[in-house]
Structure formats: C-alpha cells, structure tokens
Amino acid sequence: MMDFFTPNVYSYLAVSALMFALGAVGVMTRRNGIVVFMCIELMLNAVNLALITFSRMHNDPAGSILVFFVMCVAAAEAVVGLSIVLAIFRNKLNIDINQVNIFKW
C-alpha cells in the first residue's frame, strides 16, 4: 500500500500523459484563441515533465537539456502566437476561432 503513494517513474509519466491528453482535448474543444494557445503550452509542459523523468531515469543530461530548448521554443512561440492573436483582435475585436472562417472549400 505504501508503494502506491511513493512517487516513482510511472507516476510522473502518468501525470505527464494526463497533462498532454488534457491539453490535446482543450485544443480541440475550446473556442477562445488564447485558451487554445494555453492548452498547447500545457502539452509542451507535459513533454517537459516526461523528458525530465526520463532524463533522471537514464541518469543522462540530454533530456534535461532538451527541456531548456523546449522552454525557449515555447517562449518564442508565445511571442509569435500572441502577436497573431493581437492582429486578429485589432481587426475583429474578438478572438473566437469559430469566427475566423473566411476560407471554405
């Protein structure tokens, strides 16, 4: 019984997988551009958690280094993403992605 409550590799991985799944569901169901973007960030952080866990498991620094790169990329992505959202907000005064629908085939 004690084992169940002691965190091990699998519990971290389970949390990571859960976060990733929550993020993915959020991306597909939420309609607010910024919330969708936050869900993507959640997915990236889920990956970070998995990477750190694996890095610790293998006792190998490469995974932790990749986490730094992912954080940098996420920061850069936030800059680009929020400025796109801002441009849309200036033109339409809202960021509901259901209303971003000029193109249809």
């Binding site: 991306v27 990477l51 680009v80």
Partner: peptide
C-alpha cells in the same frame, strides 16, 4: 490573419506531438 492563426495553432499542436514522440523514444 486567419492563415496565420490557423497555421500557428495547428502547427504548434503538431509539434507538441512531435516532441512527445521524441520524449518517448528518448
């Protein structure tokens, strides 16, 4: 704007998958 938003959201969604794949292989 629309092109940018669609590409950005879907593109970063896809790269999150790519990254999780890398994490699992690692």
């Amino acid at each position: 704007n629309e092109a940018g938003l669609k590409y950005f959201l879907l593109g970063s969604f896809a790269s999150a998958f790519l990254l999780y794949g890398i994490a699992l292989i690692y």
